[in-house]
Amino acid sequence: MVTIPVSHGLLLAGLLFILGLLGVMVRRNIVFILLSLEVMFNGAGLAFVVAGSRWGQADGQIMFMFLLAMAAAEVSVGLALVFHLYHRGHTLDADAISKMKG
């Protein structure tokens, strides 16, 4: 018998989201920024699934699947950009991109 309060599930989702946000803000390696973005997506998805299971509806899981598709599209383009950036400047430092023109 599972009797977890919804607030605890949402708290965990918020905690994961905050950890991801912290990673995005603190880390300067662009691969780590993308990883932290994945953590944030994961926290949001957890919130969807927790809310969906609270009401016994499938909508939460469907939103999670859309989020999964979006994360996959985001990460493919993001990693292609990382690859591009590395071959242009031989660096993975996000601050190096601020020197781009236009």
Binding site: V2, I4, L16, N42, L46, Q61
Partner: peptide, 17 residues
């Protein structure tokens, strides 16, 4: 971390997710 979250999904009654 992702595997742990998958286990939480299972516990919450969302096996497909």
């Amino acid at each position: 971390s992702l595997l742990a979250v998958a286990q939480i999904f299972f516990i919450l009654g969302a096996p497909f997710a």
